[in-house]
Design a protein around this nucleic acid. Structure first.
Lengths: 335, 335
DNA sequence: CTGAAAGCGCTTACAG
DNA sequence: CTGAAAGCGCTTACAG
């Protein structure tokens, strides 16, 4: 294990460590001949400046911490890609952690990130109440935080999310326009789910359709749960003629039930899901879905972070990105 | 930005930095009264030891570098989850990079990882020939490497992969057993694709079915490419009566074509895919697939790395994990 | 233009 | 049991 440090290079090039450092940092006032000698030494020795040492010395921060809640969910996967792409051009690295919707795991990671002196944090909170304080304290310590996807009430930060409420409204309005009246909904109790539920209400209200509580279900993030909720809905004396599934895993669970039941989609029950999926077209009923600009969510989060690092005192910014309803066949009509 | 360092704590507790450090590192020979005082100071000041400094000083390595080729592919996503889970219990962090199947990007990341003094690297190579040297040089510098999913000829390392050849053999043998004879294949030219192709050959040979070159197609990692290849296969004077699609993106492309063509699956053409997908059951034809133990792949890679770190001189280990054929309806029979 | 020296925040022999 | 001192690999005022 040949440890080549800046000293090795300095010795080889017969200069001081300071000079080597200057050359590597493109300090202009280095004699061109010496510069050459150093560069050659670097080349020959295959020297890689130690980033850990550099980071400690310059107190520079070139790592972005990212904490998401479910790395197996394509939604987040695409977000990460967006973050990574903007980080790459800025020569920043990302340390990725998966909280697994577990608040204590998230808080552990928060501590780690702080100890790693990350430049800033992009985080998808899981349980606002338990995490608010830890997050705020990190922010107070000068590490900027960008909230992604979910909000935390009473916590002033930069954030990006999608217009959940309007997206959901469009989805449900689409169903209503196609003549559906008994529209079941399955959502989760994160802030996103709640907002999507509001959009559902908006659409029903607009059409003067009374809210039937028996058609409203909440589910956790497990697919089994949405499976059960869908079963319950379909077992109603008068089952729904349409379903609005408020996130991708729920949609999968619901589809499974409909398939099992031999329900015809959309004839017996129409279906719109929140979250588009790359394979939406290949599903047994090509899925009409509210597509989120996931890649842009990631990009925007990263950009907000970069901006905050440049101008720490800028007012907080809350970006809301639009969704897009992609009409396929699961509701019965292109519109 | 209140910077609380070990000195702050030492002052507060009226001891030396050395003592604070000892307390934090659970050094037993610290007076219990003093220990208490330090612990209290730590608590009150909210002190987080700076990991960057610690890492530099102890030359400790507690970061695992992971370079995968496509973070949006569920295959890798599940692998990452496996890695992360074993890293978490060891209190190690992972730095994740996405090479995007781009060899120069991968090499950039390799340099970064080295400069970050990672404990070791888990990497999915993309173009063996271009990366062999860089990888070997890192290994020579004492940073262990675990190759994941794909091999590099003539490079001795620890590695994990799945039994691609046998998995493919089983898939194709399944088709043959169901009476299919004109079996098309679409694979890619990574080492994995090549091995899967061998499995296809094995099954045909065993059944004494001659290889028809017109039924053999290669595709890159883009879905469009597999779309085109499937179109070509289906446009043959005598189209195939079965398709073996050798990785998940290809399967999606093929399904799309079959859907467009109105082909009945499995009546007109049976389909087996390599790679299972969480939504395989909800596809328009529930997919019979060769499932890879992706989570275990990740776990195994991480464990191999940990083992190598413990015993640097152990002989190299090449783990081959078994696949499992999951029979659904796309081939026409549960068998 | 170049080098000696200080210091980033830790840890750990070495004395005592 | 505790502290003073050295040092991990860098960078950067400060002299010259």
């Amino acid at each position: 294990m040949p440890i080549v440090t800046i000293q090795t290079v300095a010795d080889y090039a017969r200069v001081s460590r300071a000079t080597v450092s200057r050359v590597l940092n493109n300090n202009p006032k280095v004699d061109s001949e010496i510069r050459e000698r150093v560069l050659q030494a670097v080349e020959i020795l295959g020297y890689q400046p130690n980033r850990v040492a550099r980071r400690l010395r310059t107190q520079s921060r070139d790592v972005i911490g990212v904490i998401i809640s479910d790395i197996q969910n394509p939604h987040f996967t695409s977000i990460i890609r967006g973050i990574e792409d903007v980080a790459y051009v800025r020569q920043m690295n990302i340390v990725l952690c998966n909280s697994d919707e577990d608040s204590s795991k998230l808080q552990t990671y928060l501590r780690v990130m702080q100890a790693e002196s990350v430049a800033g944090l992009i985080v998808v909170p899981t349980h606002a109440d338990q995490e608010r304080e830890a997050l705020q304290s990190i922010q107070r310590n000068g590490i900027p935080i960008i909230l992604l996807d979910r909000e935390i009430e009473g916590f002033e930060v930069d954030s990006v999310q999608v217009d959940h409420r309007h997206g959901a409204y469009e989805a449900v309005a689409h169903l209503i326009r196609l003549g559906r009246r008994r529209i079941g909904i399955i959502y989760n109790d994160f802030s996103t789910g709640w907002q999507r539920y509001q959009g559902y209400i908006d659409a029903l209200n607009e059409a003067h359709i009374p809210i039937d509580r028996t058609l409203v279900k909440t589910s956790d993030h497990k697919r089994e749960s949405s499976y059960d909720r869908t079963r319950e809905l379909m077992a109603l004396p008068v089952p729904p003629d349409a379903l609005f599934t408020a996130f991708n895993l729920v949609t999968l669970g619901a589809l499974h039930v409909l398939h099992e039941l031999g329900a015809r989609v959309p004839q017996d029950v129409a279906l719109v899901g929140f979250d588009d999926m790359p394979w939406a077209d290949e599903l047994f009923s090509p899925l009409t879905a509210v597509a989120q600009p996931t890649y842009e969510l990631g990009q925007t989060a990263a950009r907000l972070l970069l901006r905050r690092l440049n101008t720490p005192d800028a007012p907080f910014q809350n970006e809301i990105l639009p969704t897009q309803l992609i009409v396929r066949q699961s509701c019965g009509s292109a519109l």
